[in-house]
Protein backbone atom coordinates (compact mmCIF):
# COMPACT_ATOMS: atom_id res chain seq x y z
CA UNK A 1 0.00 0.00 0.00
CA UNK A 2 1.21 3.49 -0.78
CA UNK A 3 2.20 5.61 2.21
CA UNK A 4 -0.22 8.52 2.34
CA UNK A 5 1.43 11.88 1.75
CA UNK A 6 -0.82 13.51 4.30
CA UNK A 7 -2.97 11.75 6.81
CA UNK A 8 -5.02 13.88 9.15
CA UNK A 9 -6.96 12.01 11.84
CA UNK A 10 -9.57 13.49 14.15
CA UNK A 11 -7.82 16.86 14.19
CA UNK A 12 -9.04 19.31 16.82
CA UNK A 13 -7.46 22.74 16.98
CA UNK A 14 -8.26 25.90 18.85
CA UNK A 15 -7.07 29.46 18.96
CA UNK A 16 -7.10 31.40 22.23
CA UNK A 17 -9.34 28.75 23.76
CA UNK A 18 -11.93 28.69 20.98
CA UNK A 19 -12.17 25.40 19.15
CA UNK A 20 -12.11 25.92 15.38
CA UNK A 21 -11.36 22.47 14.02
CA UNK A 22 -13.57 19.81 15.54
CA UNK A 23 -12.33 16.48 14.24
CA UNK A 24 -11.03 16.77 10.70
CA UNK A 25 -10.09 13.60 8.80
CA UNK A 26 -8.29 13.81 5.48
CA UNK A 27 -5.98 11.52 3.55
CA UNK A 28 -4.00 12.69 0.54
CA UNK A 29 -2.05 10.16 -1.53
CA UNK A 30 0.88 11.15 -3.74
CA UNK A 31 -0.27 12.64 -7.00
CA UNK A 32 -3.71 13.62 -5.72
CA UNK A 33 -5.30 17.05 -5.65
CA UNK A 34 -7.81 17.58 -2.88
CA UNK A 35 -9.94 20.66 -2.69
CA UNK A 36 -11.33 21.92 0.58
CA UNK A 37 -14.30 24.19 0.20
CA UNK A 38 -16.29 25.90 2.86
CA UNK A 39 -17.99 29.11 3.87
CA UNK A 40 -16.20 31.90 5.74
CA UNK A 41 -15.34 30.93 9.27
CA UNK A 42 -15.60 27.20 8.62
CA UNK A 43 -11.95 26.65 9.56
CA UNK A 44 -10.30 26.48 6.12
CA UNK A 45 -7.46 28.84 6.89
CA UNK A 46 -7.02 27.33 10.35
CA UNK A 47 -6.51 23.95 8.73
CA UNK A 48 -3.79 25.31 6.43
CA UNK A 49 -2.09 27.16 9.31
CA UNK A 50 -2.12 24.05 11.48
CA UNK A 51 -0.59 21.96 8.70
CA UNK A 52 2.13 24.56 8.24
CA UNK A 53 2.75 24.81 11.98
CA UNK A 54 1.47 28.21 13.07
CA UNK A 55 2.08 28.55 16.80
CA UNK A 56 -1.07 30.52 17.47
CA UNK A 57 -3.13 27.37 16.97
CA UNK A 58 -3.20 24.68 19.61
CA UNK A 59 -3.76 21.15 18.43
CA UNK A 60 -5.81 19.65 21.24
CA UNK A 61 -6.53 16.23 19.74
CA UNK A 62 -5.74 14.10 16.73
CA UNK A 63 -2.72 13.65 14.50
CA UNK A 64 -1.15 14.76 11.24
CA UNK A 65 1.20 12.33 9.57
CA UNK A 66 3.24 13.51 6.62
CA UNK A 67 4.99 10.92 4.50
CA UNK A 68 5.17 8.63 7.52
CA UNK A 69 6.47 11.23 9.97
CA UNK A 70 4.57 12.99 12.74
CA UNK A 71 4.21 16.53 11.44
CA UNK A 72 3.06 17.91 14.80
CA UNK A 73 6.50 17.13 16.24
CA UNK A 74 8.18 19.50 13.79
CA UNK A 75 8.62 23.26 13.92
CA UNK A 76 7.28 25.28 11.00
CA UNK A 77 10.69 25.53 9.31
CA UNK A 78 11.33 21.83 9.72
CA UNK A 79 7.99 21.11 8.11
CA UNK A 80 8.98 23.27 5.16
CA UNK A 81 12.28 21.42 4.91
CA UNK A 82 10.43 18.10 5.06
CA UNK A 83 8.42 19.18 2.03
CA UNK A 84 5.27 21.01 3.14
CA UNK A 85 4.59 24.28 1.38
CA UNK A 86 1.86 26.76 2.31
CA UNK A 87 0.87 29.43 -0.17
CA UNK A 88 -0.46 32.20 2.08
CA UNK A 89 -3.77 33.89 1.57
CA UNK A 90 -2.13 37.13 2.71
CA UNK A 91 1.63 36.91 2.04
CA UNK A 92 3.61 38.78 4.68
CA UNK A 93 5.72 41.84 3.95
CA UNK A 94 9.21 41.99 5.41
CA UNK A 95 10.78 45.44 5.18
CA UNK A 96 14.46 45.66 4.30
CA UNK A 97 14.84 42.00 3.28
CA UNK A 98 15.23 41.45 -0.43
CA UNK A 99 13.19 38.66 -1.96
CA UNK A 100 16.23 37.16 -3.62
CA UNK A 101 18.10 36.92 -0.39
CA UNK A 102 15.08 35.55 1.40
CA UNK A 103 14.65 32.83 -1.20
CA UNK A 104 18.30 31.92 -1.22
CA UNK A 105 18.15 31.45 2.51
CA UNK A 106 15.09 29.22 2.09
CA UNK A 107 16.43 27.17 -0.84
CA UNK A 108 19.72 26.46 0.86
CA UNK A 109 18.12 25.62 4.20
CA UNK A 110 15.91 23.09 2.49
CA UNK A 111 18.71 21.66 0.32
CA UNK A 112 20.83 21.30 3.41
CA UNK A 113 18.03 19.38 5.13
CA UNK A 114 17.77 17.09 2.15
CA UNK A 115 21.50 16.47 2.15
CA UNK A 116 22.02 18.35 -1.09
CA UNK A 117 24.82 20.80 -1.72
CA UNK A 118 24.00 24.43 -1.33
CA UNK A 119 23.61 26.38 -4.52
CA UNK A 120 26.15 29.01 -5.39
CA UNK A 121 25.02 32.39 -6.58
CA UNK A 122 25.12 31.50 -10.27
CA UNK A 123 23.19 28.26 -9.97
CA UNK A 124 20.71 29.92 -7.67
CA UNK A 125 20.05 32.72 -10.13
CA UNK A 126 19.64 30.23 -12.98
CA UNK A 127 17.11 28.30 -10.94
CA UNK A 128 15.25 31.47 -9.98
CA UNK A 129 15.06 32.62 -13.58
CA UNK A 130 13.79 29.29 -14.78
CA UNK A 131 11.07 29.09 -12.14
CA UNK A 132 10.08 32.72 -12.53
CA UNK A 133 9.49 32.13 -16.22
CA UNK A 134 7.21 29.22 -15.46
CA UNK A 135 4.76 31.51 -13.64
CA UNK A 136 5.35 34.60 -15.77
CA UNK A 137 6.79 36.42 -12.79
CA UNK A 138 8.64 39.63 -13.50
CA UNK A 139 12.14 38.86 -12.26
CA UNK A 140 12.64 42.45 -11.19
CA UNK A 141 10.19 41.85 -8.36
CA UNK A 142 12.84 39.70 -6.75
CA UNK A 143 15.04 42.70 -6.12
CA UNK A 144 12.34 44.27 -4.00
CA UNK A 145 11.81 43.54 -0.35
CA UNK A 146 9.74 40.49 0.44
CA UNK A 147 6.20 41.12 -0.78
CA UNK A 148 6.63 44.86 -0.34
CA UNK A 149 5.06 46.97 -3.03
CA UNK A 150 3.68 43.88 -4.80
CA UNK A 151 0.20 44.08 -6.26
CA UNK A 152 -2.35 41.52 -5.11
CA UNK A 153 -1.79 39.43 -8.22
CA UNK A 154 1.98 39.68 -7.95
CA UNK A 155 1.86 38.46 -4.38
CA UNK A 156 -0.11 35.37 -5.31
CA UNK A 157 2.04 34.65 -8.32
CA UNK A 158 5.11 35.07 -6.15
CA UNK A 159 3.72 32.45 -3.78
CA UNK A 160 3.30 29.93 -6.61
CA UNK A 161 6.76 30.83 -7.84
CA UNK A 162 8.15 30.13 -4.37
CA UNK A 163 6.41 26.77 -4.41
CA UNK A 164 8.05 25.91 -7.73
CA UNK A 165 11.41 27.01 -6.36
CA UNK A 166 11.21 25.14 -3.06
CA UNK A 167 9.97 21.97 -4.75
CA UNK A 168 7.73 20.59 -1.97
CA UNK A 169 6.00 17.19 -1.77
CA UNK A 170 2.80 18.76 -0.57
CA UNK A 171 1.46 22.14 -1.65
CA UNK A 172 -1.25 23.74 0.46
CA UNK A 173 -2.89 26.66 -1.33
CA UNK A 174 -4.87 28.89 1.01
CA UNK A 175 -7.45 30.80 -1.05
CA UNK A 176 -4.84 31.53 -3.65
CA UNK A 177 -7.66 32.66 -5.93
CA UNK A 178 -8.94 35.42 -3.67
CA UNK A 179 -8.55 38.88 -5.09
CA UNK A 180 -7.43 37.66 -8.53
CA UNK A 181 -9.02 38.56 -11.84
CA UNK A 182 -9.59 35.82 -14.38
CA UNK A 183 -6.33 36.31 -16.25
CA UNK A 184 -4.26 36.27 -13.10
CA UNK A 185 -6.20 33.24 -11.92
CA UNK A 186 -5.35 31.36 -15.12
CA UNK A 187 -1.67 32.14 -14.78
CA UNK A 188 -1.60 31.00 -11.17
CA UNK A 189 -3.56 27.84 -11.97
CA UNK A 190 -1.28 27.07 -14.88
CA UNK A 191 1.71 27.43 -12.57
CA UNK A 192 0.17 24.97 -10.15
CA UNK A 193 -0.76 22.51 -12.89
CA UNK A 194 2.80 22.46 -14.13
CA UNK A 195 3.84 21.30 -10.69
CA UNK A 196 1.41 18.38 -10.60
CA UNK A 197 3.29 15.08 -10.64
CA UNK A 198 2.80 11.50 -9.48
CA UNK A 199 4.84 12.22 -6.36
CA UNK A 200 3.37 15.53 -5.38
CA UNK A 201 0.06 16.17 -3.68
CA UNK A 202 -2.01 19.33 -3.27
CA UNK A 203 -4.57 20.65 -0.86
CA UNK A 204 -6.37 23.52 -2.55
CA UNK A 205 -8.44 25.59 -0.20
CA UNK A 206 -10.98 27.84 -1.80
CA UNK A 207 -14.23 29.58 -1.21
CA UNK A 208 -15.41 29.48 -4.82
CA UNK A 209 -15.70 26.79 -7.41
CA UNK A 210 -14.09 29.09 -10.01
CA UNK A 211 -10.50 28.06 -9.27
CA UNK A 212 -11.44 24.40 -9.71
CA UNK A 213 -12.26 25.03 -13.37
CA UNK A 214 -8.54 25.49 -13.85
CA UNK A 215 -7.07 23.22 -11.21
CA UNK A 216 -9.12 20.08 -11.59
CA UNK A 217 -9.29 18.28 -8.24
CA UNK A 218 -9.47 14.54 -7.71
CA UNK A 219 -11.52 15.01 -4.56
CA UNK A 220 -13.65 17.79 -3.13
CA UNK A 221 -14.39 18.10 0.59
CA UNK A 222 -16.86 20.43 2.21
CA UNK A 223 -15.66 21.89 5.50
CA UNK A 224 -18.35 23.31 7.76
CA UNK A 225 -18.01 24.37 11.37
CA UNK A 226 -14.66 22.63 11.77
CA UNK A 227 -15.58 19.28 10.26
CA UNK A 228 -15.60 17.75 6.81
CA UNK A 229 -19.28 17.14 6.25
CA UNK A 230 -19.21 15.81 2.73
CA UNK A 231 -16.61 14.41 0.34
CA UNK A 232 -16.93 13.60 -3.32
CA UNK A 233 -15.35 14.02 -6.72
CA UNK A 234 -15.08 17.28 -8.68
CA UNK A 235 -18.83 17.27 -9.38
CA UNK A 236 -19.42 18.09 -5.71
CA UNK A 237 -18.00 21.52 -6.36
CA UNK A 238 -20.65 22.12 -8.99
CA UNK A 239 -23.38 21.04 -6.59
CA UNK A 240 -21.98 23.51 -4.07
CA UNK A 241 -21.91 26.26 -6.64
CA UNK A 242 -25.53 25.60 -7.48
CA UNK A 243 -27.05 24.97 -4.05
CA UNK A 244 -24.76 26.96 -1.79
CA UNK A 245 -23.25 25.80 1.48
CA UNK A 246 -26.54 25.88 3.35
CA UNK A 247 -27.51 22.59 1.74
CA UNK A 248 -24.67 20.93 3.59
CA UNK A 249 -25.64 22.13 7.02
CA UNK A 250 -26.02 19.27 9.48
CA UNK A 251 -29.81 19.58 9.46
CA UNK A 252 -29.81 19.06 5.73
CA UNK A 253 -32.27 21.82 5.02
CA UNK A 254 -31.53 25.14 3.37
CA UNK A 255 -33.25 27.21 6.01
CA UNK A 256 -30.06 28.88 7.09
CA UNK A 257 -30.22 27.49 10.63
Amino acid sequence: MTTPLLEIKNLHASVEGTEILKGVNLTVLPGEVHSIMGPNGSGKSTLSSVIAGHEAYDVTEGSIMFNGIDLLELEADQRACAGVFLAFQYPIEIPGVSTKFFLKAAVNAIRKYRGQDELDAMDFLDLVEEKAKSVNLNIELLDRNVNQGFSGGEKKRAEVFQMALLDPLLGVLDETDSGLDIDALKIVAEGVNKLRSPERGFVVITHYQRLLDYIIPDFVHVLMDGQIVKSGDKSLALVLEEKGYAAFKPCGCSCGC
Partner: peptide, 8 residues
Protein backbone atom coordinates in the same frame (compact mmCIF):
# COMPACT_ATOMS: atom_id res chain seq x y z
CA UNK B 1 6.00 32.15 10.75
CA UNK B 2 6.29 33.12 7.11
CA UNK B 3 10.08 32.69 7.20
CA UNK B 4 9.72 29.40 9.14
CA UNK B 5 7.24 28.11 6.62
CA UNK B 6 9.90 28.61 3.97
CA UNK B 7 12.32 26.45 5.92
CA UNK B 8 14.31 29.23 7.60
Amino acid sequence: FYCNSRGI
